[in-house]
Design a protein around this nucleic acid. Structure first.
Length: 491
RNA sequence: CGGGGUGUAGCGUAGCCCGGUAUCGCGCCACAUUUGGGAUGUGGAGGUCGUAGGUUCGAAUCCUGCCACCCCGACCA
């Protein structure tokens, strides 16, 4: 266990890195920019996957799997798409190694690929090339497919979970007969993401639309959910793209309409990644460690028996602990009974706080005698001794309270950190001194957006959906504006 | 990729300037005593000092390349 304590308030970045490692979520690997996700971290990711996958299935999607490799030529078919990803692609050029005369293993230059293969940074191209063969008629539509996969983007600078060279994600790719249907799909998946973020991750998000600058390469419109981290920086947590007919045209995907006309198909794609792990960590955790929302915690309740040396007393305590464990399990709660006798209770308390376990139950000889337990909640650190009668109902209720409380706390923080400003001075002041989102009028041009980014490092995170329309003037240029947009410094 | 910094046992570190194969704490193993907020004692194991070269009788220490990580920029989910 890593005992180095770094406070959030002193060095947020070091605190984050330290927490990821000390809570056993992930570590750096021998490969540059790539991480090893450790079992505890992966367990959390699996819970995320399960919740998302359930929601995808409920909205009519099916999972499939497409190749890791994409022929280079596929990329050049959609112009803006290649522009967006060209600078960060890993390329496979050979398929064989050999032993050189000096005994070293080297690339066999005679085994050069005719056409290089790109390790997918995203799968639109290979998928749309495949869809061409799947789609002939309006009766083949819609196609509602999701894939769970790894992708590679050769980023300059990486951070555990937030930006790694290889990352895990899901990417949905759908094909529709009409523009309206595709747009409805795009919006539906945005809602799915928002629901997941708020109800499972307990992270409040702003739903919005990206500006042209921030739009996905190849999309007509990019919808997103944006979260606000505890250090006041924004994090893009998921995107849902309306791709129009761009990919259908690039890959010549047409279908026969009812009256036998050939039309191009309408497309969407949408994805969230292991970056959500970063969002989860940075939204809730504190100086003692991780704080996991119960809906996502691999271990929801840990029981720490206070074991004494006296055999019969120890047995009484353990039996009671097992009894409670089994009662909670019947409620579908995941419970760990930590009966290790080589560490003290205090050590275990600290360890499970570090790992973010929502509820801790301590049971000692005193409790057995009194039919009580000590229940501690991770989010507020409150402890109380309560009767062990009906404990399963009480804990079930408490878990749900904790879920709500964690969300509410994050929501309050977020809402307190949306600063509405009207002048450039206020804009600068908010960015420098208040942190968080800055809600301001903007003249709608990319030039202004880029200028602001250059001057302040803040970008437009999104134009919030259902944004109130109001007349105002752009904070930079003074040009008229119809609505506010959200600026922030972002990860 | 540019600027700055770091790399010594599982983790955190001392030693480096002024060359002589390494310090301390936590953790680990054994035993004993402990166990209601990170236990104590005794004994023990664990290091090609990031890596590859070079200088030297001798390199953790000096020089060079490379790798990784951290901070600041540019790029981005």
């Amino acid at each position: 266990m890593d005992n180095k304590k770094v406070k959030r308030s002193e060095d947020y970045s070091a605190w984050y890195n330290n927490l990821v490692k000390s809570a056993d979520l992930a570590e750096h690997s021998a490969v540059k920019g790539c991480m090893v996700i450790k079992p505890y971290g992966y367990a959390i990711w699996e819970k995320m996957q399960a919740e998302l996958d359930k929601r995808f299935k409920e909205t009519g999607h099916q999972n499939a799997y497409f190749p890791l490799f994409i022929p280079k030529s596929f990329f050049s078919k959609e112009a803006s798409h290649v522009d967006g990803f060209a600078k960060e692609c890993a390329v496979v050029t050979h398929y064989r190694l050999k032993t050189a005369e000096n005994g070293e293993i080297v690339v066999d230059e005679t085994a050069k690929l005719e056409e290089e293969l790109i390790v997918r940074p995203t799968s639109e191209t290979i998928i749309w090339n495949t869809y061409r063969d799947w789609i002939k008629s309006h009766r083949d539509l819609p196609i509602l497919v999701n894939q769970w996969a790894n992708v590679v983007r050769w980023e300059m600078r990486t951070r555990l979970f937030l930006r790694t060279t290889e990352f895990l994600w899901q990417e949905g790719h759908t094909a529709h007969a009409t523009s309206e249907e595709a747009i409805a799909e795009t919006k539906q998946m945005l809602e799915v993401y928002a629901d997941f973020a708020e109800n499972i991750l307990a992270v409040p998000v702003v739903k919005g639309i990206k500006t042209a600058n921030e739009r996905f390469a190849g999309a007509i419109e990019t919808y997103c959910i944006e979260g606000l981290m505890q250090d006041g920086k924004a994090l893009q947590m998921g995107t849902s793209h309306f791709l129009g007919q761009n990919f259908a045209k690039a890959f010549d995907v047409k279908y026969a309409t009812k009256d036998n006309k050939q039309e191009y198909v309408w497309a969407t794609s949408w994805g969230v990644s292991t970056r959500l792990m970063g969002a989860l960590i940075m939204s809730h955790s504190d100086d003692e460690g991780l704080i996991l929302p119960p809906n996502l915690a691999p271990i929801q309740v840990v029981i720490v028996p206070i074991i004494s040396k006296k055999e019969e007393e120890k047995e009484l305590v353990l039996n009671k602990a097992k009894e409670i464990q089994s009662a909670l399990r019947k409620k579908g709660i995941s419970v760990k009974l930590d009966d290790r006798d080589n560490t003290t209770p205090g050590y275990k308390f600290a360890e499970y706080e570090l790992k973010g376990v929502p509820v801790r139950i301590a049971i000692g000889p005193r409790d057995v005698a009194n039919e009580s337990v000590e229940v501690a909640r991770r989010d507020t650190k409150e402890k109380q001794v309560m009767s062990s009668i009906d404990i399963d109902h009480k804990i079930e209720h408490l878990l749900s309270q904790i879920q709500t409380n964690i969300y509410q706390k994050a929501l309050d923080y977020r809402d307190q950190h949306i600063n509405a400003v009207n002048t450039w001075d206020e804009f600068i002041d908010a960015l420098e001194n208040k942190t968080g989102f800055v809600s301001a009028h903007w003249d709608g041009t990319s030039e202004t957006e880029l200028k602001i980014k250059e001057l302040t490092k803040a970008t437009i995170r999104c134009v919030p959906l259902s944004n109130p329309q109001e007349n105002g003037i752009c904070v930079l240029t003074g040009a008229p504006s119809k609505e506010r947009v959200l600026f922030a410094k972002a990860y």
